[in-house]
């Protein structure tokens, strides 16, 4: 059984990392990163079956692809704190000569990253390809991906969603970060997408909701259920209901902090709401 307290402590530390990273360079995307902290911690600490070290081909282990690459702060923090590289390197986020580029890339050789992402809408296709390679290799491990809800406005997603069910890519679990916000406002203001659940179901996916996407126990339970639904002829979609900016009160429930860094005072408030648990980098 996972130790929930330990995972919660790690999540709090990840939130501190996110705030400190974007504050230092006065740029980056804290809102979506904070909202997905529980998901990333659960995935890398409990859900995924991962090999030691990093191998690009990832044979014999579960794989994860981040499609909405702008939430790189949470990705980098959890990768570092899961052993892919030193947590000290978080200090280099978005700086010249860093492996921690503004958006994730394989180009600088950062362990843990298997595809560049940032230009939106491309990650599901890549995850599908990796999942089909696993089938060809008789590798029964799973492929996970994460996408923003606003990101679903990109048409390539729907090509991929149509394909995955038609070709029975049932070793794929794609999570949608359903925070209802994008840069210019709420997703309903920018371009209402109607029922995302209904759309995925109409396209032939199995869909489950994790209503409390910022509750570690709920995420673990939901992702375990998602895993149990793989291998049944359909790809699995997890609608992860999160709060953008979760854990920092003034950043919550608004798109305002999608891509804006806190100033010194705001950082202090945010850090005070998230006590240091495992030690800052």
């Amino acid at each position: 059984m996972p130790n929930i307290k330990e995972l919660e402590d790690l999540t709090t530390q990840v939130r501190r990392d996110i705030l400190r990273m974007v504050h230092k360079v006065n740029s980056g995307h804290p809102g979506g990163s904070l909202g997905c902290a529980e998901f990333f911690v659960s995935l890398y600490q409990e859900i995924m079956d991962r090999n030691e070290g990093f191998d690009m081909d990832g044979k014999g282990e579960d794989l994860f692809f981040l499609s909405n690459g702008h939430i790189s702060p949470v990705y980098y923090s959890v990768l570092a704190r899961s052993g892919y590289f030193s947590v000290d390197e978080l200090n280099t986020f978005r700086l010249i000569d860093s492996r921690l580029q503004g958006h994730p890339t394989t180009h600088e050789g950062l362990p843990g990253i298997r595809i560049a992402s940032g230009s939106l809408g491309q990650g599901m296709s890549v995850a599908i390809g990796a999942a089909q390679a696993k089938k060809l290799n008789n590798d029964d491990h799973l492929v996970y991906s994460l996408h923003g809800d606003g990101e679903l406005q990109e048409g390539q997603n729907w090509e991929a969603i149509m394909y995955a069910s038609a070709k029975k890519v049932d070793n794929l679990i794609s999570a949608i970060d359903l925070n209802g916000q994008q840069i210019d406002g709420s997703t309903d203001d920018v371009l209402p997408m109607g029922s995302i659940k209904g759309k995925f179901e109409a396209f032939g996916w199995t869909v489950i909701d994790i209503e409390e996407g910022n509750n570690i126990e709920a995420v673990l339970k939901g992702m375990a259920e998602a895993k149990s639904l793989t291998g049944k002829g359909k790809p699995v979609c997890v609608l992860l209901h999160t709060i953008m900016g979760n854990g920092v009160d003034f950043m919550m429930h608004t798109h305002a902090w999608h891509g804006k860094a806190p100033n010194d005072e705001q950082l202090e408030i945010g850090l005070n709401q998230n006590a240091e648990t495992l030690g800052d980098y």
Binding site: K59, I115, G123, V126, I128, G129, Q156, E159
Partner: peptide
């Protein structure tokens, strides 16, 4: 577009 992404994913493996 989906084809290019799937091709990229297939290289992983």
């Amino acid at each position: 577009a989906n084809m290019m992404g799937i091709a990229a994913g297939l290289t992983i493996g």
